[in-house]
Amino acid sequence: MLRVAIVGASGYIGGELLRLLHGHPRVTVVAATSDRLAGRRVDGPHPNLRGHTDLCFVGHHTLENTDFDVLFLAAPHRETMGRMAEYLKLARTVIDLSGDFRLRDPEVYASYYGVAHAAPQLIPEFTAGLPEWHRARLTTSDRIAVPGCMATAGILAVRPLALDGLIEGTVRVDARTGSSGSGVSGGAAGAHAERSGALRVFAPSGHRHEAEIAQATDRTVRMTATGVEAVRGVQVLCHVKLAPGVSEKEVRSAFRAAYGDEPFVRVIAQRQGLYRLPEPKILTGSNFCDVGFAVSADDGTAVLVGALDNLVKGGAGGAVQCMNVRFGWPERTGLEFFGLHPN
């Protein structure tokens, strides 16, 4: 059994890591940090864990001079990079869920996050934590940066066509996300009285996940992000111009070639039924990302759709999947739940 620890375990991503890892047959969670809640049981802020663990939070300082097999980092953006050198001493494998090591160019990072990168020399050590496109590197990488939730959905939706040269010009992403994407400390904007019934465009341009999609697809990307009333879930609509002569059949073939053997990506583009295109509601709690498309033959455009649970495939589940790849385990280990319907 591998000994794993979670830094920043009191938030929503930290809670999902605890849930998934406590059900994983090959690991034992030996530490979960929260300076604010040190000494308290983890099933306080994460009541779904009641009866499954007696683990208590510990302060970050208690990790000093400790050796883990895997360290999951669910700490805030901008904070993680300043402590990364310290974290790398604590574990053989470090899996980071913050945004600090996702972007390869420190200048791009500074433009999207508003601060200079504190550890640019470490960026090249990290592999993008998206097994569908970086599986070979992940098998030997001990420094993994898991993409953001909307970025994961956008990359999985756009990259097959981008790599095959089937699209041209700017990719325009219309992203929608549930309230859990704001985290536990979402502030006044996340209060139920303000959020209920709202469709809030919180990032009309320049959302940081825009840079991740652009980096992964080698395309200019413009992204708008809207908060919707759901608690969980991400759905992205990626508007693209098809290259001259590209047919709907070629689009479908590109998706099937990319994801036909993938355990957690399904191509959903049907002409009938209630769920003809990817819908995050039926993915709640699962590690799936559904992708699909709709082609407009009249003007040679297409809408590429991606949907996932932002806390699972878009966060903790993606991190656990990367761990499974790294250690040569079946990728569905600990990630077998496949959603609910109706939900």
Rank of each mutant, 00 (worst) to 15 (best):
Y12R: 07
G82E: 08
G129K: 06
K89S: 03
I6D: 04
D218Q: 10
R326L: 02
T217Q: 09
G23K: 04
R135T: 02
V94L: 02
A75F: 11
V27C: 12
E125W: 05
E279D: 14
A214C: 09
D290V: 00
F264E: 08
L311I: 05
V29R: 10
D290N: 05
A118G: 13
L130Q: 06
M223W: 03
E86N: 06
I13L: 15
N310Q: 14
S247P: 00
V240A: 09
P280K: 03
E248D: 14
H341D: 01
C149Y: 12
G197F: 09
P330G: 12
Y259Q: 14
E212M: 09
E229T: 11
G186D: 05
D290P: 00
W329Q: 06
V30W: 09
S296Y: 01
C289P: 03
E132Y: 02
G233C: 08
F264P: 12
I6E: 12
I155Q: 11
Y109T: 06
F101L: 06
H52Q: 14
P106Y: 06
A257P: 04
G15Y: 10
V7L: 13
L130M: 15
Q321E: 15
V29Y: 15
H341E: 02
I167M: 02
N343P: 00
R83E: 04
S34Q: 10
M81R: 13
C238N: 15
E212N: 02
I144H: 06
R159I: 06
T284C: 03
R143S: 03
A257D: 12
L17P: 07
R50G: 10
G206F: 12
G314W: 13
F202L: 15
Q321M: 13
D69S: 09
A151M: 08
I123K: 10
P160G: 08
M323K: 03
M1W: 07
T66E: 12
L21Y: 08
R135Y: 11
A75G: 06
G285H: 00
R208N: 11
T33E: 06
G315A: 11
H61D: 15
A74P: 03
E168D: 10
L71Y: 12
P131H: 06
L166F: 10
C238Y: 07
R83F: 10
A128V: 15
